[in-house]
Write a protein that binds this DNA or RNA. Structure first.
Lengths: 215, 215, 215, 215
DNA sequence: CATGAATGAGCCTTCATTCAT
DNA sequence: CATGAATGAAGGCTCATTCAT
């Protein structure tokens, strides 16, 4: 029936394949609605192998979150480093990479960012850790970029965290927008986003000014 | 045992109570993990009543989404109308109201915006419709605000939609930030967000300018 | 197909029926090999009812042990009390009742006394408690019977416990013997057992005498 | 990782090691709850070896029962023979050896005597055979001991079997008593047991006398 | 001789849903 | 209007058993 030459594959390879399948299914259905059978089938193996290697559905999910969080952080950091030069360029490069990750590796991002953490203690902890990691990365880039160019004080950590959250949320949401405009070039989105926040970002980080009372 | 004087309550009231309970539970657990028993108990009635009034778990969820989407849209529109005056103030008021809704009525927002739509056809459709409604509202405000001040053409619809998505995503994410800083005043968040995007928003709507090649 | 007029039965009745069925199946198969489906079918209901009323297979087993231990203890105590009179007669009546219970209510006894306690913490605890209760009952009768007739000291508690264990074990084993001799009258067994231990029992309780070195 | 120099061991040795491990695990968990993986690990080999040598879990269990039954019978017979002399001493030696076996080789005894036989045809048959063997051995000693001293008829076979069952059951149960009194010397238990039944045993074998109506 | 990789089958448990009252 | 009683249909997890190497 299926492709059942029963490939004998070393453990490490199978683990990767299983996580690949799992990220996809978890992303499509959400943690609860995801069915281990489907993951196993997509990975081309039987269910008990999943349990042999990951102990439980929860353990498998945690493995997915851990791997994807690491990938995102690495992608992001490397892009910023490779850009070097002016803080402006570094920030642009980092955000661009982040944005690309969210847009292209949809499954990974959904697993990291769109799962209700209330499913279990372990899952809540792992998701919290992953999100903290990602946020810390973005916050660091935002903060460093600005304070460097400002030659100034680091008391903007508080503000930087705010900006980082807003940026990440915006990038996430813009991905939905892109799905409605598949023809529009993907770089355009990151460029627009950058333009939309670049000026105001700096202002906020330096201590916002605009207020409704004073039009 | 419990407080079971078996209140005889008219249908409309019971329906409201059930939806209240359901919004809470769906928000906490997600659609799949939510259990009808818990909703019924929280609403102070027995499970068959839920089915009598809403036919199925799916039907109940759809009712929740529909009601909360309407509420959000109304809240948003009324705030903008009440503000009147300059487009800047109207936009500020609208966004502020939106932001307040997302922050204060956490359950409602989570039900509207953080549910995996892949659970079923009907749910996907309802969520899509709800999100489209909300987005349309925000987009309209953004577009009108600008085009009015611009006195200009409406060809910015495309860009306005982009901005609206980014705004909504940012507002959503900033709510998480607020949870980490409960001491910080809630208005501060909307003010910061406004400052962060106000200038760039207008630039983007007018056709962005900044580009990485030209620092 | 089956007898499915779907009897609506009050909870307490159903619980008794389920435990009846469970005692039988657990006794036949042992805890692990027992299958909840079979218990449910024997009780004439569907599996979920079992879980609704007893939470888990473990919970059901615990309920069985608890009920049967109580029954045995009651049967035993009442018989001894009813006998009144001389300690000898009281002891005889008690042991006879105990023996009858073990022989007639085979399932109950097997559930109480022939289950490996290593299945889980809760089960081990419950079985330990049940066995302790039963042993305490028998020990008390043995001790009181003798010390009264002796008009003497109660320092025989230690020995009484020994005798009680031996008696219970013997009664248990004799049941197997009875299964091989179904024609032999059941009273004969308890009578033989009584004769076999009555004299020696008293000797042991008074401090045994015989020793192999002195033939 | 582990101590895996992959010992090349002759078949007979491996078989013994496996049965050793199996007796332990079966005794601890019971037949059903015992897991072949654990047996293999305890034996220091891989699971397929177990199947190579014993074909199935059932086959392995049967092998355990067979070996332990043989051991018990041998131990018992040899002790009685070595004692020689008077029937009283022979009986004492035999029972003492039996008791020691039950107490010291706990695992073996549990595998032989505390397993639900209903797991399968083959297991029921093997357990029945083993128990029959053991009982026959004990019965023979009891019967011979008495009839010799009596110089009398062998029509006491029926009674002897009864006494043998009671003795075995008592010895089994007394082991539990010993676990509660680890300080008490083990010989004391067998001595007490002997004293408790010696006189009554003979009476019963000669045709019991005591009856409740005649105090 | 020896094992890591793999699976079919089954069991405990849960939950949306329905009736009889 | 209201509910206690009941179940069909999954889904997570385990385990005896088998190959390919």
């Amino acid at each position: 029936m299926k492709d059942k030459p029963k490939r004998r594959v070393p453990r490490s390879v199978r683990e990767r394949e299983i996580v690949d399948a799992a990220v996809h299914v978890f992303s499509q259905r959400g943690y609860r609605a995801a069915v281990v059978d489907e993951i196993a089938e997509l990975a081309g193996i039987s269910k008990p192998m999943v349990y042999l290697y990951f102990t439980s559905k929860e353990g498998l999910f945690v493995a997915c979150v851990r791997r994807e969080a690491r990938r995102l952080a690495e992608t992001f950091r490397e892009a910023a480093q490779r850009a070097g030069g002016s803080p402006e360029l570094r920030l642009w490069a980092g955000l661009s990479a982040f944005f690309a990750f969210v847009a292209e590796r949809r499954d990974s991002w959904v697993v990291l960012h769109r799962q209700a953490p209330e499913q279990s203690e372990a899952i809540a902890a792992e998701l919290a850790e992953a999100r903290r990691t990602v946020m810390a990365e973005v916050t660091a880039l935002v903060a460093s970029g600005i304070s460097d160019s400002d030659g100034g004080d680091h008391l903007g950590e508080f503000e930087a965290e705010f900006v980082a959250h807003a940026l990440v949320g915006a990038a996430d949401a813009v991905t939905d927008w892109m799905e409605r405009h598949p023809d529009s070039p993907p770089d355009g989105a990151s460029l627009r986003l950058m333009n939309m926040v670049w000026i105001g970002m700096r202002d906020v980080l330096a201590g916002g000014t605009w207020a409704p009372q004073a039009p």
